[in-house]
Computed example of a mutant assay.
Amino acid sequence: MSLEIINTPIFATIQDKGRFSYTHIGVTHAGVMDEYAYYIANMLLGNKKDENIIEIAFANVEFKANTNTQIAVTGAFCELFINNEPKKIWQTHNLKVGDIVKIGKFLEGSKVYLAVKDGFKIKKEFGSYSTTIKENLGGLNANRLQKGDILKINSHTLHHTSRLKDIFHPKYEDTLLLRVVLSYQEESFSAKEKQKFFSSEFTVSNEFNRMGCKLKGEPIKCDIDGIVSEGISFGAIQIPSDGQPIILLKDRQTIGGYPKIGSVLSIDCFKLAQAKPNTKIRFKQISIEKAQKKLKEFYNSFN
């Protein structure tokens, strides 16, 4: 009883919410880049909220069902085929033995999520299924998925389907407004530089992966060259010596020595995760109180 990878994906990994409480020993947080798509996929299947999922970063991935099951595909709007018949995403699909699933071209967005009923039967490491290649942890053999990989699953013969109403489908836009909580290091940036940061338009560069997203734009200057290395939060905005902001994401290093002007609201990082190079980025300041309220509203919406 399994789902089998039958071609060679460029970059697809097993992820879940990530690892918590291990950064003090240098273990990366990891986890899905777009938590909205992740939670919806598991909700559609009636899975546990923290069940594992496949995160697909490039087009053309093919699977074969070796048992009856049900899947949900969410995230980037993509071409989805089952036995060469086009299907819609943001809903469930029932599979029977021998069915071939293909994730084709990405039309909007950059991360597709494929979840299966009851998740994949693999072991957790440090409390998570998430793959972290540079630390040799999680997933299937601690690596990206490859041709011939067999992902064990439970067998289910289901006849119903579930779908997300169109009104709740995300929009993947060419310009993003990201909300930022200023950091305690903001005093190392002059009022002029902070004003420049919030009034400028930046562009997503090609240096964009699971570790972070480097932007291109008007350089932001800091009054100090560096700091003593310290822990780094999800969404932290580092300002290196070239002045080009780097937004740190799920596979970020656990410590760093660049000054940080602030941190992007985590739920906005999920939108950033679906961006492509050349996407335009603008920043807007938000208070810590409003940020906490927005986070509570987001996570409570899945209860």
Rank of each mutant, 00 (worst) to 15 (best):
T157L: 15
A59Y: 03
N141R: 12
N136D: 14
Q244P: 13
L164W: 03
G98F: 06
P259R: 02
A30E: 06
L140G: 00
I71T: 02
D225L: 03
L182R: 05
F126E: 11
A76H: 09
A37M: 05
H160C: 08
M1C: 14
Y38M: 04
A57D: 07
G148S: 05
G46D: 11
I246V: 15
F198H: 01
V181M: 11
F197G: 00
Y258T: 05
S21I: 08
F168L: 11
G256W: 02
Q238R: 11
S188H: 13
D242M: 08
K171Y: 09
K64L: 01
S110F: 02
K216T: 06
T67N: 09
F302R: 11
G75P: 10
I5G: 01
K216W: 02
S287K: 01
L177A: 07
S241I: 09
S162P: 01
S241H: 11
T67V: 09
Q253Y: 02
G257M: 05
D174W: 00
Q238K: 12
F81M: 05
T157A: 15
D174K: 07
T74M: 07
S190E: 06
G119S: 09
T69N: 13
F197H: 03
A142T: 14
L249M: 15
S130I: 06
P245C: 08
I103N: 04
L80R: 05
H29P: 01
I100E: 13
T69H: 06
V112C: 12
T132P: 00
A59S: 13
L178S: 03
A12V: 04
N206V: 10
V101I: 15
T131F: 03
A275Y: 03
D223H: 04
G26H: 11
K121M: 13
K123S: 15
D118M: 09
L176P: 10
Q244R: 14
P240G: 14
K105V: 09
I6Y: 12
I25L: 12
K147F: 04
R144D: 11
K88I: 05
L265T: 04
P245S: 07
T92K: 07
S263N: 03
I150V: 12
D268Q: 13
S162D: 06
E218T: 13
K216P: 00
S301A: 13
F106S: 05
I40G: 01
N42Q: 13
K121N: 14
V116S: 02
H93A: 05
N143F: 02
F189T: 04
V228H: 03
E62G: 09
G226K: 13
G31P: 00
S188Q: 11
L158M: 09
R252Q: 03
E4V: 12
N300I: 12
K49D: 04
Q285C: 01
F208R: 07
N141T: 07
L265P: 01
A142I: 07
T161K: 14
K123I: 13
T132F: 06
D50P: 02
I14M: 12
F126V: 14
G243K: 05
F198I: 01
A12I: 06
K165M: 11
I261C: 01
G148M: 05
S266V: 14
I232A: 04
N143S: 15
E79S: 10
V101D: 07
C269G: 01
A76R: 10
L182T: 06
G262T: 06
I220T: 02
Q238A: 14
M33K: 03
N42S: 11
T23R: 10
N94M: 10
S263D: 00
L114V: 04
M43L: 14
K280D: 08
S229Y: 10
S233W: 01
G256E: 04
S241V: 10
